[in-house]
Design a binder for these strands. Structure first.
Length: 505
RNA sequence: GGUCCCAUCGUCUAGAGGCCUAGGACACCACCCUCUCAAGGUGGCGACACGGGUUCAAAUCCCGUUGGGACUGCCA
């Protein structure tokens, strides 16, 4: 009996550069790489491309690792650092140089531009480097970049899992620089060399890298020749760009792209991941798909070729669905960083206050010693079905933990200030609440009767009470809220509202 | 300018020649439910960019046009 030879284990890398917050586009790339490896029993590798000393910062690397962790897709291998691969890079450069694939170039940017201009004036619009130093036989030296000698004829074809075969004519490919004047490799080279040394089998990355792929293929082939090896090219898949409402590539400067920010706003990693998976790919009939199914159904070949708009509204809707699907105890646990941050653990920078102009203020709005776990747990079920993001939670329960919740002036004016029945309603509630049974249904009944005695439906009758007790016009169901708040505190606030009414009008 | 990519409702997508008077989801609108707000239910609005082919038959294949985008750095 023969044992079937095992399929090679796919090795995929996610290779961000640590030059800023973790970008949602990067997260999507990481996800597709990760899904593929989970499905095929492959290896998901994190490689930090940190060869640009000027822009790299170690904290950005920490951010990448934390974000992957948060999204539930930590690397199987790594992080590896491209900066630690210097020896391999230098060996590759040496081999390439010795094989004649490279030549030294001393042209400055200005010189190249001047020649391009002159050429254009003479009627030749070909842009880019003109191969001035190509056959000068210049020796290598400080300040001289190394260029790759591209063929004059023919073309290089990129075989891409999502785009099919894409052909790039050589005559439009300039002799590109792959080693800087200081001897350090450029992305195009370092990236390919690392993929070789790490035995990467599949390269799934953003579409913006498609134009550099033919160069990397030429380099790959030249490296095979120069080192007398026969490494197989990785399988490429270029994922559609993530764009903003103007259809432009998501930019770190103008668009909300930081994954960290979504975490702060209280998006669940499960929801975020699910939404990300829908950008450029579709699982079929249902969009809300548990992770195991995502892994099972994902097919790189089915990825869309056109760009996708990152729609926060849809993300938010999906997050609400995920939040509502949580058990109450899980919801309480997930809410903790927003309502009762634990020292030393991750905490968001703020919470969402619907009545304030600025979106967030730092920390929960109440002193931590006033937070009560049990009380929060009692309110949690009705809060859970009313939020789409966790940062909205504090505003729905702050009246429980604030000694005197601030009263929203607009709400006060509308529900109490401009309503002559309001004082009677507040007084009536204050009286009736003194000795009725303190239970939601009973409070409902009593308040409903009170309203009717003034010819009011409950919807209108509850408004002044809500504002007086919680400070807001909207919030969780009132009678649940009162039940949890307690009789004495409720009546104290009703009395305070009555006093305020007398002193301000 | 050059090279390359892309093109189904406002958005994300289903659709791999007949199943399409184009399906779903988000958003929007209306109604229902309702103690506010949500959630939920019901219904509505809404797309194959255009022009040529190929075919008995095209959203699906081919060509062109138009439109959008990416890249074009001694950044990654």
């Amino acid at each position: 009996m023969t044992v079937p030879s095992p399929l090679p284990v796919p090795r995929l890398r996610f290779a961000p550069s640590p030059t800023g917050f973790f970008h949602v586009g990067s997260a999507r790339s990481a996800l597709f790489n990760w899904l593929f490896t989970r499905q095929r029993g492959g290896t998901f590798i994190l490689r930090i491309e940190d060869t640009d000393e000027a822009r790299n910062r170690p904290e950005w690397t920490d951010g990448i690792i934390a974000a992957l962790e948060w999204l539930g897709m930590p690397p199987d291998e790594g992080p590896y650092f491209q900066s630690a691969q210097g020896a391999a890079h230098q060996a590759a450069i040496e081999a390439l140089w010795n094989s004649g694939a490279l030549y030294a170039c001393g042209c400055t940017r200005e010189e190249i531009e001047a020649r391009t201009k002159a050429r254009a004036a003479a009627g030749d619009p070909t842009p880019g480097y003109d191969g001035y130093c190509r056959d000068l036989g210049l020796p290598r030296g400080e300040g001289r970049a190394l260029r790759f000698r591209t063929p004059d004829e023919g073309s290089t074809t990129v075989v891409d899992l999502v785009r099919g075969e894409v052909e790039f004519p050589h005559r439009a490919t300039e002799d590109f620089i792959c080693v800087k004047g200081n001897g350090m490799p450029l992305f195009v080279l370092a990236n390919a060399v690392d993929d070789r040394t790490m035995a990467i089998s599949h390269v799934f990355r953003g579409e913006e890298l498609l134009p550099t792929t033919p160069k990397q293929i030429m380099l790959w082939d030249a490296l095979n020749v120069a080192t007398a090896t026969d490494l197989a090219l990785p399988v490429y898949a270029h994922l559609p760009l993530l764009v903003n409402e103007q259809g432009k590539k998501l930019s770190k400067r103008r668009d909300p792209v930081a994954v960290e920010m979504y975490r702060e706003q209280g998006y669940l990693p499960s929801a975020f991941r699910n939404y990300l998976a829908l950008l450029g790919w579709s699982p079929g009939e249902d969009e809300i798909v548990p992770l195991e199914e995502l892994i099972e159904r994902f097919r790189i070949e089915d990825v869309q070729r056109s760009p996708a708009f990152f729609d926060i509204q849809k993300l938010t809707h999906m997050n609400g669905v995920y939040i509502r699907a949580l058990s109450t105890s899980a919801f309480v646990a997930e809410s903790r960083p927003w309502v009762d941050p634990v020292a030393g653990e991750w905490a968001p920078g703020g919470w969402h206050d619907p009545d304030a102009d600025s979106a967030t203020t730092p920390g929960p709005p109440w002193p931590t010693e006033r937070f009560n776990d049990e009380v929060f747990g009692l309110m949690a079920p009705v809060v859970q079905e009313r939020v789409a993001t966790l940062s909205e939670v504090p505003a729905l329960v702050d009246f429980l933990f604030l000694e005197d919740p601030p009263i929203d002036q607009k709400g006060w004016d509308k529900a109490i200030g401009r309503d002559e029945v309001a004082p009677k309603l507040l007084q009536g509630a204050f009286d009736l609440y003194a000795d009725c049974e303190w239970q939601r249904d009973e409070l409902h009944r009593v308040t409903s009767d009170l309203g009717e005695s003034f010819g009011r439906k409950l919807g209108k009758a509850q408004a002044p009470i809500r504002v007086a007790v919680t400070g807001r016009q909207v919030g969780p169901p009132l009678f649940e809220s009162l039940e949890v708040l307690g009789r004495d505190e409720t009546r104290r606030r009703l009395a305070a509202a009555l006093t305020r009414l007398r002193t301000t009008t």
